[in-house]
Design a protein around this nucleic acid. Structure first.
Lengths: 243, 243
DNA sequence: GCACACCTTTCTGTATACAAGTTGGTATGC
DNA sequence: GCATACCAACTTGTATACAGAAAGGTGTGC
C-alpha cells in the first residue's frame, strides 16, 4: 500500500546525482568551475554524504575531478576526448550493423525503427530537441537489436557522455531532414543485408553529425570565452577549452 | 618532504576496494555470497564510510549488487555476461588492428611487443600466471597503440572484468606455446599491413582462449557446485551459475 | 500442529562530528 | 617595500550516531 507513497523519497543520492549532471549539461556548472561538497550540500538542502556519493559517480563518469583536499572541479572541455568517444561509438555501431546483417532470422526487432523513421516527409517531426532525442534512441536501439547487452550498455554510456555536445546538433531544419533520410537509408541497407553499404552509410551519418557538432561547439565556446573575458574571470577553463 | 612519508596512509577506500576485489577474484567471496557493510568494516578494521565507497565502485563495475536495505551480494556468475564481454573485446581489438594497419607512419609503437613475443622458442617463458599477465598486456598494448585513449580505457575495463575467468587459461603448457605463436602471427600480419589476415588471426586467437576458459570454467563450477551440495548450502548461487 | 501477528534484530540510507591537510592572507622582521 | 613565517578558515577523508525499513524468529490463538 505504500508502493506509491514512497515515490519520491527513495534515493537522495540519485536525485543529487541527476541534478548535478543536469547542472553540468545546462552549463550552470561551467567547465573548469570549482566547488566544494558543502556548497552543493547546502544548496540542495542535504548532508554531504549523498553529495559525495553523487560526486564519486560523476567522477567515475569523467564529468568532475576531485582535487586532493582542495575541492572539486567540473572537468574542462576536451575536444580530443569527445572525438575519441565519437570514434568508439562508430566502431560499436558498425559492429552492431554487421551482426544484424549477418543474423540469420527475421529482423523484426527493427520494425519499431522502420515505422518511426521510414515515413513520408509530411509525417516527419521537425522539433529540434525531440528529433535529437529520437536520434539518440535510434542509434541505441540499433545496437540493442544486435543482441549483446554489454555492448549496448557501453554504447549507452558513450551516448550519455556525448549528449552534452550532441544535442547541439539539430538546431537547424536541414539537419533534421538529413537525419531522416540517412536513418532511412541505413535501415533499408540493413534489411537488404548489405553490410558494407549499411556501414558506409552509418559511418557517414555519424561523421556528418560529428562535423556539425564540432562547428557549433567551437562557436559556442568562443562565445563562452568572450563572456568570461568580459567578466574578467580567470581564464583557466577557457584555456583548456581552446587548447 | 613528506611526499614519501604518506606512502601508505592515502586512500583507505581505495585499499578496501582493491582488497574486496581480490577477495572476489580469489573466491574468498564466492558468487552469490551475501554480506553486510558492517561485516566488511569490522573485518578490515575501518568504519563503514570507506567500505561503502568501495562497494559502490564495485557495484558500478558489476562485481556486487546491493539489496535494498538488506545487505550486499557478490554477483552470481553469468556465462552470457562473460561471453558478451569477450565479444566486445574482439570488436574493439579488431578495430584497433584496422587502425594500426591503416596508419600511415611507422609502427614503432609495436617494437616492444615484437621484442617480447617474436623470440625463438628457447627464450620463451612458460610460467602460466606470468604468461597470463603478459597476454593481458599484449592485447592492451595493441589497443593503446591504435591511439584512441577512450577505446583503450574501455578495453582496459573489459580486461579487468574478464580477468576473473581469463586467468584460468594458461594452466596447460600447450596453451602457452600456442599463445606465443598466435601473438607472433598477429604482429607480423599487422607489420605487413594485412588487415584482413591480422583480424582473422586475432579473432581466432581470442576465440581459442575463450573456448579454453569456457571448458575450464564449466569444470570448476561443477566442482564448486559439488562442494556446495556437500555442505548442503542453499543452491541459489549455483542455480544461476549453471543456468 | 499450524498459521498469523508482533517484536526484536539487523540492514542500508542519511546526518553529523572529528581529523588531517591545503590554501591564502596577514603580520612581522628586515 | 619585500619576503618569510605563521595562523585561521576551509577542504576532503573518516568515524560515528540516528532513522526508517526489511527479515526472521517467537509466541499466541485456534
Amino acid at each position: 500500500m505504500n508502493a506509491r507513497a514512497t515515490k519520491k523519497t527513495e534515493n537522495l543520492a540519485e536525485r543529487i546525482y541527476l541534478q548535478l549532471k543536469q547542472d553540468i549539461f545546462d552549463f550552470r556548472l561551467m567547465p573548469g568551475d570549482r566547488f566544494s561538497e558543502n556548497e552543493i550540500a547546502e544548496r540542495m538542502g542535504v548532508s554531504r554524504t549523498p553529495v559525495r556519493e553523487a560526486l564519486f559517480r560523476l567522477q567515475r563518469e569523467a564529468y568532475v575531478d576531485v582535487l586532493y583536499r582542495s575541492g572539486w572541479q567540473v572537468k574542462p572541455f576536451d575536444f580530443k576526448y569527445f572525438e575519441e568517444l565519437y570514434d568508439v561509438r562508430t566502431i560499436l555501431e558498425c559492429a552492431a550493423v554487421r551482426k544484424l546483417c549477418e543474423h540469420d532470422g527475421e529482423l523484426s526487432k527493427l520494425d519499431d525503427l522502420v515505422s518511426q523513421w521510414c515515413v513520408p516527409s509530411e509525417q516527419r517531426l521537425d522539433d529540434g530537441p525531440v528529433v535529437s532525442g529520437m536520434d539518440e534512441r535510434f542509434h541505441e536501439k540499433l545496437v540493442e537489436a544486435a543482441g549483446n547487452s554489454e555492448m549496448a550498455r557501453i554504447h549507452h554510456d558513450l551516448t550519455e557522455r556525448l549528449r552534452i555536445i550532441r544535442r547541439l546538433d539539430f538546431t537547424k531544419p536541414p539537419r533534421v531532414d538529413a537525419t531522416y533520410n540517412e536513418h532511412q537509408a541505413v535501415l533499408e541497407a540493413i534489411l537488404h543485408r548489405r553490410v558494407e553499404q549499411a556501414q558506409i552509410l552509418l559511418r557517414a551519418h555519424i561523421e556528418e553529425s560529428r562535423n556539425e557538432v564540432r562547428k557549433i561547439t567551437v562557436h559556442m565556446l568562443h562565445e563562452a570565452s568572450a563572456r568570461s573575458q568580459l567578466h574578467s574571470v580567470e581564464a583557466s577553463s577557457i584555456d583548456r577549452i581552446d587548447g
